[in-house]
Nucleic acid binder design. Sequence first.
DNA 1: GCATTCAGTTGACGTTGTCAACTCTGTAGG
DNA 2: CCTACAGAGTTGACAACGTCAACTGAATGC
Lengths: 188, 188
Amino acid sequence: MISRVESAAATRRALLDAAAGLLDEGGPEAVTLREVGARAGVSRGAPYRHFADKDDLLTAIAAQAWNALADQAVTLGADPELSTRDKVRAMLAGMLATGRERPHLYRLMHRPPAGPEVLQAAGRSQGPFIAALSDLVGAAQAHRFGAVLLSGAHGAIGMEASGQLTRDKWKTDADEILDTLVGLLPAR
Amino acid sequence: MISRVESAAATRRALLDAAAGLLDEGGPEAVTLREVGARAGVSRGAPYRHFADKDDLLTAIAAQAWNALADQAVTLGADPELSTRDKVRAMLAGMLATGRERPHLYRLMHRPPAGPEVLQAAGRSQGPFIAALSDLVGAAQAHRFGAVLLSGAHGAIGMEASGQLTRDKWKTDADEILDTLVGLLPAR
DNA sequence: GCATTCAGTTGACGTTGTCAACTCTGTAGG
DNA sequence: CCTACAGAGTTGACAACGTCAACTGAATGC
């Protein structure tokens, strides 16, 4: 038997999935509440029972994506097979993979201004990152290194997405930039 | 006496200025062709005499902004008072200033996918940048260094704009990240 | 002087986000 | 078991928007 709250939660998930799918397939302008509702099997007004407005729905998608990245970071941080340096590298590579496979979602995740919901989810993904860096460079330097690494990775992903970072022009790509950035860390 | 082509060019400029102003003041959703026309003193249909559609108008604004940055870079590159390292630093600082003072415009400049018009204007701004780096690290390494520096700067600007790079959380800011990045270059 | 070109206007249409009123159905309280 | 309620979902309506087609008018070239 499906209770009412279960059914409502399922609809909410269906709406999020539908919107994320439309975003991936057709970019931001393809995400219309009417089409989101249709894909989720409900009407155009149904989303307003679960989200304040369209922006709120998009924010929820961004937060969800950040949380998925956070889960991945937590898993990587706890992996005993990986060196600390490889953990850092893998966390940045996870961001790069999102940027390449789901560019519109990636851009949505960095849409300003980030609300508290998104900031918290993003912060959760940065916890294991800082922890790994603390192992390598000490707690005092971890934040400064982290900011440089994260900025570099985020910038490379963005420039690659917009078509500005091409191997043709720069003789390199985002992967190599990640290598260079991680290479700044002491090897331990 | 104002000829017809002069008047048309003036209207085109007025449309660009109006759209850029609306973008700065109210973000992307504040840029409506109706309001752009009103600010430029023409009707809602007038923009279609100068731009294919709204997207084309936004692209023109992005290209214009890149060209302004390119002009600045050219001037900096030719400044005999500045050390090569200071030139590089100043060029990146120019990007940072745009990102802080006109965040919506900055985001528009990096909107994917960048059309040829935007790519060319952006490339023009990168010429002096590469030239300065060649002075410091040699032509062979200039591109690889340039990609890292530009990625780092762009990422820091973007994270600051979205509210993710705060001194409270990272004990640093975009200025210091720029210093760190430029510090990677040999001092000459 | 005349035809032409082209910037600019206006009316219209489809799409979209959003609200208000409505229906319907589990669920809680007696 | 019955009733009242809460809340998920639907539908009609509206304003705003991008865009097109038809139209106007004036500067330009011959």
